[in-house]
Design a binder for these strands. Structure first.
Lengths: 227, 227
DNA sequence: AGAATCAGTGAACGTCTGTACACCGAAACT
DNA sequence: AGTTTCGGTGTACAGACGTTCACTGATTCT
């Protein structure tokens, strides 16, 4: 970041690459976040103590304060991180949807569910964190999560508007439908996590999610006509 | 329970009705349950200590053990209680559905949502408890809740089978649909609780729930034909 | 080379936690 | 009547908790 030339004083190349101070700090910060994500798995963030986190990371309790000033603010950082990965997933879903926005609903649904399952598998800690702390975290964390989910719903609504057959929907319809979809996808994520390594169960859950998503879409497409 | 005649030694009627021992115990037990329900409102049951509960009830900490042997077993009692009231609600929904099972889906939906909103308003502590501890309670509590929700879904599936137009559904369809409905109703309950006393917001949430429920049903009725 | 920064240390504090134990006194049984 | 039962009490303890403070020593800046 500085304008100076090579700031590294290491002359020979065999030194194990001395860590810079900010790198080291970032590494510890990550370790704290990971430890908290891990520990909150039993029960919830509310059940996690600063001392537990410190012990898990391998620092002394007071060292925690160099990075966060409370478990709650740590929680808010985890919310940011979790939704960053969730947004990455939504971007993946969107990308495919846009490249062929015409026609086959079924394939869009299939793809969306597959992307969801993929991300849940790789980032299940984040999804689990959201699902859990949404209902049970510290108040500030709960509110942050609700807010983020609201944003996701609005994003999804905007996406839905690009699909064919949705011209008759009111803005209320869009809101309802994306709320319904987000809700059931959160539930799917929870179920996938609960299923753990049981691949058969996972596939069953994905199949159910596909069906449910199709039902919702079919219902949404028909419902204006059938009230 | 004994065969003896009047066991009460009170001769005159103006005595303030001496409490029997089991009555007194039950009263304290109730107070403990209520206190725990209350205290777990901030965050979760995991964040509630035996001593807090005891202080709230007005007994000494060790007195707690006369009724429960841990916060966790108290939680299991609350699960029973909460689902008892949820079941009462389902019974109410069912009763009306059965008295006129033909035709008007819309009115069934309207009625169901109204009953839900009613019960949520009166028993919001129970619903909130379920929604919260389902994701964040002690492990045993979480499992108990998941199990009970599974039962509710099966009950609902059996109910749906009585409605007209559902003959083409497979047993998988029934499972998927009731899962979808239960999931979105749980979400509705959460939203209603979050809305608090704001009557306008409540009405909006109910309207959304009605719409969503109709969409799901319309989708379910059409989806076999449109895959 | 010298000064400043700052992630991590270690001891100490007051408070809260769950649990053990012996005890009380009124209700319930015989 | 005498005895047992048992909900609730009071004291006590060891451990975990969040937070304070003064510290160290390697990295970074000048």
């Amino acid at each position: 970041m500085t304008a100076a030339g090579d700031p590294s004083p290491v002359a020979v190349g065999d030194a194990p690459r001395v860590e810079t101070r900010v790198e080291r700090k970032e590494r510890t910060r990550r370790a704290i976040l990971d430890a908290a994500l891990d520990l909150s798995g039993e029960t919830s963030l509310v059940g996690v103590s600063l001392r537990q986190v410190a012990k898990e990371v391998g620092i002394v309790p007071t060292g925690f304060y160099r990075h966060f000033d409370s478990i709650e603010s740590l929680g808010l950082a985890l919310v940011d991180e979790s939704f960053a990965s969730l947004r990455a997933m939504l971007r993946d879903v969107r990308q495919i949807d846009r490249q062929d926005p015409e026609k086959p609903f079924a394939s869009i649904v299939d793809h969306s569910v597959r992307v969801l399952a993929d991300h849940v598998e790789r980032q299940h800690q984040h999804f689990l964190f959201i699902a859990r702390e949404r209902a049970a975290g510290p108040r500030a964390v709960r509110e942050a999560i609700r807010h983020e989910i609201g944003l996701c719903e609005r994003e999804l609504a905007a996406d839905l508007a690009l699909l064919p057959g949705t011209t008759r929907w009111s803005s209320e319809d869009f809101r309802n439908i994306s709320n319904l979809i987000v809700t059931s996808m959160v539930a799917t994520a929870e179920a996938l996590i609960a299923a753990g390594d049981d691949v058969e169960a996972r596939e069953q859950i994905c199949a159910a999610a596909r069906t449910q998503l199709r039902m919702v879409i079919v219902g949404a497409l028909h419902w204006r006509a059938n009230v």
